[in-house]
């Protein structure tokens, strides 16, 4: 692994809740401008890793280092929750969608640009007076929101409450909202959950476009193998809080340990299954 091109390096990460060890001495890296998938059976500790990276949990031990393109290094385990998004520019989505349901799709994207707009409005004072510089910043923010809405195909529903949108649209809107914070690393927690085949394909396209157009690195948890195998450049497999495999999609697909973990059998049986297949 060439360490120079990693955007995120997780080292010896452990997370304990009382006596339960959710993540145990986990080390992996996410490559810059690549899509890294974190997979594993239910309860493997994937979301816990996410919550540690995005500051919702303080890890029991270990380090999480973020290396943005401009150089420098940030230790995410030392940053407060909202600073991880504001300063370190790590955005995330949630397994159970967390939009602002009573606000319109457009407003959701405007809230995401909060920190930029806060500065532009002179921390409210200039905005209260309605100065031209604030108006321009607001117009730009609306334009950015509009272009994202167009990109996810929700332009026609911009003025509808987010809570009234269909499930698939809500998923895409949440990704667009996270992208409006202009992140360097986008963490997606099961973006394809509950999507049908067509919507999954559209999601794949969207994620590849995000990577290509914005150079945003993506780290995602996903169960849908059609998404994982098709778009990820690198896969990390977790089971019972421990990393059991790490490599390219092709290597992971044939790894007996991974198959054993998913099938819930031991390694020999899994190997037998693969050989039977071949």
């Amino acid at each position: 692994m060439n360490g120079g091109d990693d955007i995120l390096a997780v080292e010896h990460l452990s997370m304990r809740f009382g006596g339960i060890v959710a993540v145990n001495d986990l080390s992996f890296a996410a490559r810059r401008n690549r899509i890294t998938a974190l997979i594993g059976p239910n309860g493997a500790g994937k979301t816990t890793v996410f919550n540690c990276i995005t500051g919702f949990y303080k890890p029991s031990s270990g380090s999480i280092r973020l290396m943005p393109a401009g150089g420098g290094m940030m230790r995410l385990e030392r940053l407060n929750d909202f600073r991880i998004s504001k300063v370190a520019k790590v955005a995330r989505t949630f397994q159970n969608i967390r939009l602002f349901p009573g606000m319109t799709a457009l407003e959701n994207l405007m809230v995401a640009q909060h920190n930029m707009l806060m500065r532009a409005s002179g921390f409210t004072l200039l905005g209260l007076l309605g100065l031209p510089s604030w108006r321009m910043a607001e117009r730009d923010a609306i334009e950015r929101a509009r272009s994202w809405l167009g990109r996810i195909g929700l332009l026609a529903r911009a003025d509808d409450a987010a809570g009234n949108l269909p499930y698939g649209d809500q998923r895409r809107l949440e990704i667009a909202r996270a992208m409006c914070t202009e992140p360097v690393l986008l963490c997606l927690d099961e973006p394809a959950a509950g999507l049908n085949a067509r919507e999954s394909a559209a999601l794949n396209e969207l994620l590849l476009a995000i990577r290509a157009d914005y150079g945003t690195s993506i780290l995602m948890i996903e169960h849908d193998m059609s998404v994982v195998m098709e778009i990820s450049d690198h896969i990390v497999v977790l089971d019972y809080g421990v990393k059991i495999a790490d490599g390219s999609p092709r290597a992971i697909r044939d790894d007996p340990k991974v198959i054993a973990a998913y099938l819930g059998t031991d390694e020999d049986t899994a190997t037998a299954v693969i050989e039977g297949d071949a």
Binding site: F56, F94, M103, H114, T124, L128
Partner: peptide
């Protein structure tokens, strides 16, 4: 006026979902 400024939107967003606000750097 405040409702149309980022601070007012953040208030309403906080009412809607505090966790999501934190994830957006508010």
């Amino acid at each position: 006026r405040l409702r149309r400024l980022p601070i007012g939107r953040a208030w309403e967003a906080m009412r809607e979902d505090e966790v999501a606000c934190r994830a957006l750097g508010i």
